[in-house]
Amino acid sequence: MPSIVKHPHRVMAALALVLIPAGALATIATADQSVGPARCEIRVTPEGDMVSLEALAYADRKVSGTYSFHVESAGQTGSTNIEQGGAFSAAPGRPASLGAVTLDAKGAVYDARLEVTVDGKSIGCADQIGGAT
C-alpha cells in the first residue's frame, strides 16, 4: 500500500505545535470564567422538616452586579418554581446575601441555580438538594 505522507514524524510534530497552543487557550478560557472578582454559593441549612437555601456572593474587591436565583422541583405533593433576582453589592470579608427560601424537606428534591454577573462576566452555581428526612 503506497504512503501518501513521506515524513509522518514531521506531520505529527507540526500537528502537535498547532494543537498544544489551542488546548492551552481552551484551558485559559475555562479558567477565566471561574476566576474573577466574585464567586457564588448556595448555602443549604436543614431546619427540622424544612430546608433553607441562601444565595450568597463573595468578592475579592468591592463589586456590584446582578443575580438570578432559581429553585424548582416537581414531586407527588406538587411543584415549586421560585425566581429571585436583582442588583447587589459585595465587598471583601462580607458575603452578600442575595436571596433565601425555606422549603418543605420531606421527600422533596430541589434544583437550585444561582447566576451572578459582575463586570460583564457571569459565574454560576448549581446544587440539587434531596430533602428526604
Results as ranks from 00 to 15, higher is better:
residue 9 H to P: 08
residue 10 R to V: 15
residue 11 V to N: 01
residue 13 A to T: 10
residue 13 A to N: 07
residue 14 A to D: 02
residue 14 A to W: 04
residue 14 A to R: 05
residue 15 L to Q: 07
residue 15 L to A: 10
residue 15 L to V: 10
residue 16 A to D: 05
residue 16 A to S: 12
residue 17 L to W: 10
residue 18 V to T: 11
residue 21 P to I: 03
residue 23 G to I: 03
residue 24 A to M: 11
residue 25 L to G: 08
residue 25 L to P: 06
residue 26 A to Y: 09
residue 27 T to N: 11
residue 27 T to H: 11
residue 28 I to W: 10
residue 31 A to N: 12
residue 32 D to V: 15
residue 33 Q to P: 05
residue 33 Q to S: 14
residue 33 Q to D: 13
residue 33 Q to A: 14
residue 33 Q to N: 12
residue 34 S to Y: 13
residue 34 S to F: 15
residue 35 V to P: 05
residue 35 V to T: 14
residue 37 P to F: 07
residue 37 P to N: 07
residue 38 A to L: 06
residue 38 A to S: 14
residue 38 A to T: 12
residue 40 C to L: 07
residue 41 E to P: 03
residue 41 E to T: 09
residue 42 I to N: 02
residue 42 I to A: 05
residue 42 I to P: 00
residue 43 R to A: 15
residue 45 T to A: 10
residue 45 T to S: 11
residue 46 P to Y: 03
residue 47 E to S: 11
residue 48 G to W: 02
residue 50 M to A: 14
residue 51 V to T: 06
residue 51 V to I: 09
residue 51 V to D: 02
residue 52 S to A: 14
residue 52 S to W: 05
residue 53 L to V: 00
residue 53 L to H: 00
residue 54 E to P: 04
residue 54 E to H: 07
residue 54 E to G: 07
residue 56 L to P: 00
residue 56 L to E: 01
residue 58 Y to T: 01
residue 58 Y to D: 01
residue 59 A to D: 02
residue 59 A to T: 06
residue 60 D to N: 13
residue 61 R to A: 13
residue 62 K to Q: 15
residue 63 V to K: 04
residue 64 S to G: 15
residue 65 G to E: 01
residue 68 S to T: 14
residue 68 S to G: 14
residue 70 H to Y: 10
residue 70 H to S: 08
residue 71 V to L: 00
residue 72 E to A: 12
residue 74 A to D: 12
residue 74 A to C: 08
residue 76 Q to F: 12
residue 76 Q to L: 15
residue 77 T to G: 09
residue 78 G to C: 08
residue 78 G to K: 06
residue 79 S to I: 11
residue 80 T to A: 07
residue 80 T to D: 04
residue 80 T to Y: 04
residue 81 N to W: 10
residue 82 I to T: 03
residue 82 I to K: 02
residue 84 Q to P: 01
residue 85 G to Y: 06
residue 87 A to V: 13
residue 89 S to Y: 09
residue 90 A to Y: 02
residue 91 A to Y: 06
residue 92 P to Q: 05
residue 93 G to C: 04
residue 93 G to V: 07
residue 94 R to C: 06
residue 94 R to G: 07
residue 95 P to N: 05
residue 98 L to E: 01
residue 99 G to V: 00
residue 99 G to L: 01
residue 99 G to K: 02
residue 99 G to S: 04
residue 100 A to C: 08
residue 100 A to G: 12
residue 103 L to T: 05
residue 104 D to R: 10
residue 104 D to I: 13
residue 105 A to S: 14
residue 107 G to F: 04
residue 108 A to S: 11
residue 108 A to T: 11
residue 109 V to T: 15
residue 110 Y to H: 00
residue 110 Y to F: 07
residue 111 D to Y: 09
residue 111 D to M: 10
residue 111 D to F: 09
residue 111 D to H: 12
residue 112 A to L: 03
